[in-house]
Amino acid sequence: SAVVMEEGSPGEVPVLVEPPGLEDVEAALGMDRRTDAYSRSSSVSSQEEKSLHAEELVGRGIPIERVVSSEGGRPSVDLSFQPSQPLSKSSSSPELQTLQDILGDPGDKADVGRLSPEVKARSQSGTLDGESAAWSASGEDSRGQPEGPLPSSSPRSPSGLRPRGYTISDSAPSRRGKRVERDALKSRATASNAEKVPGINPSFVFLQLYHSPFFGDESNKPILLPNESQSFERSVQLLDQIPSYDTHKIAVLYVGEGQSNSELAILSNEHGSYRYTEFLTGLGRLIELKDCQPDKVYLGGLDVCGEDGQFTYCWHDDIMQAVFHIATLMPTKDVDKHRCDKKRHLGNDFVSIVYNDSGEDFKLGTIKGQFNFVHVIVTPLDYECNLVSLQCRKDMEGLVDTSVAKIVSDRNLPFVARQMALHANMASQVHHSRSNPTDIYPSKWIARLRHIKRLRQRICEEAAYSNPSLPLVHPPSHSKAPAQTPAEPTPGYEVGQRKRLISSVEDFTEFV
């Protein structure tokens, strides 16, 4: 048969007729292969192709491409040299491709048809291009793949890379869960390890502090508590009631339409708007009261037996805890006409967050109470924005700035309102402590230090009264110190430094 060459192609190359033996071998191979691939376009007849790359030819070592076609129900084999250009295909004639002069020997084609199974398996396991790669995943090629499931790999992101949580363990979102698992493993320790309690022994800490320079003076030496005195035992138990972190309780009120001037209507609300609910979820963490331990979680007086509701929101960081007394989460009882059960919590909070959804101005004093010092007013606006402002009593104007209003988005509203309420509550605590000038409020841990110092002074006084020969370590507060001759004046800087060093040991009130 003659071949018409394309323009620009090399000279004529004689194409030899395939021997009958080659056709029989390739026909047997075509019957084993699956003929249901995917359909081509209507211009080209339905056909199945599979590209198999052999590394070497037997005796020649030339890479070839073998295409199996099922045109007219008769499979045909096409061998081509890759750099050459194939002729145009037609549905009426068999596929013809040019070969190099080196394939002119018909014996070479017979060798190609009689490829060993080793070469076929190696060509099938190679990388296939384009559409033949999808075909190689079918059941027909499963014989050339190794048996057994593939090893499982770690989760992959859409980009093909490992997620960040699997790369950096410290930033993994499941870090707290692993800590819980470690605690569970520790709890399952053997009885021999049960006595080993991690941490620092208080006796060891005391020993280090006792021999430090801070205890060089007799006034700073630790003293032993009497065991037989019940009054001192009660004082030590009272110390446990003062937490070592700051605590805040903040009221949250929802004002519906037409309720801006009605205290009873505001306290009777059992739910609010959708934006109000989203605002609550951002204030803190939802907790169930019956599962809380009052000595570990500050509840601000809420009952854990269901008297004040089942849930509330709280927030904490390293040095403070805040609980929100939310009116809509507290039960509304029919027998309580004046809502006294709610007001006994909300009316005693220094700061209230008022979500004013009424469309009218909310005035300070609508919720009557002796300790309502500051109101954080949240007014929802259009386009997911809110107006946040402050209202306070006249005696609080020096501590709280009420002249600045803020426009905040719904997303950042819980954070801004919480921070403003916490700052206002700190100012309210300082303002409330002014009624007792001898006990200015600095912080909870300073209050613990003052309680310890008062307890020490009482013990020293009782020891001096029981044994008059012992001198008083600290003179009583009601006694007057003996007159001392004025010492020589020293520079102001040295006096300030000495006073600062003494105050650092005794108390921190002056620095606050």
Rank of each mutant, 00 (worst) to 15 (best):
D308F: 09
V408W: 01
N386Y: 01
E488R: 12
T281R: 15
D395A: 08
E461G: 14
L390N: 03
A483H: 11
E307T: 09
H316Q: 14
P414S: 12
Q391C: 07
D334K: 15
K333G: 10
Q457K: 14
I446L: 06
I287C: 13
V473K: 15
V416G: 00
E270Y: 04
L225V: 14
P380T: 00
T438H: 10
V252R: 00
A265T: 04
R500W: 07
G256L: 00
L472H: 15
E462R: 07
T366G: 04
I459C: 08
K296D: 15
K480G: 15
G398K: 08
G272D: 02
V416L: 06
V505T: 13
P294T: 12
H474M: 11
K342Q: 06
I377M: 08
L238G: 08
K368D: 14
A447T: 14
M320L: 15
K363G: 06
C460E: 14
D240G: 05
Q391A: 14
K444A: 08
P475G: 15
E288R: 09
L238K: 15
K394S: 14
V374S: 03
P226A: 15
L387V: 13
R454A: 15
Q370W: 11
S219E: 15
V255Y: 02
T438W: 07
M396Y: 03
E462S: 08
M420W: 05
Q497N: 13
F373I: 06
Y274F: 10
H474Q: 14
G256M: 03
Y245R: 14
N386V: 02
L302W: 15
D240M: 03
D349W: 03
E270R: 05
V505H: 14
C340W: 15
H316Y: 11
V255D: 00
P331K: 08
D334Q: 12
Y493P: 14
L239I: 09
V354W: 01
C340L: 15
R339S: 11
R234N: 14
L224C: 15
L390Y: 11
P437R: 05
I223F: 09
N467L: 14
D334E: 13
A463Q: 09
F232C: 11
D240A: 06
P491S: 10
H248S: 05
I446F: 07
V378Q: 01
L346S: 05
I242Q: 08
Q241E: 15
Y274K: 08
K290C: 08
C305M: 11
E397Y: 08
A322K: 02
I459L: 12
Q230E: 12
V378L: 06
V297N: 15
L346T: 09
V388F: 00
S244H: 11
F415R: 02
V430F: 10
K343V: 10
Y493S: 15
L387Q: 06
E233S: 09
L253F: 05
V430E: 03
F232P: 07
R456Q: 15
V304S: 09
V378R: 01
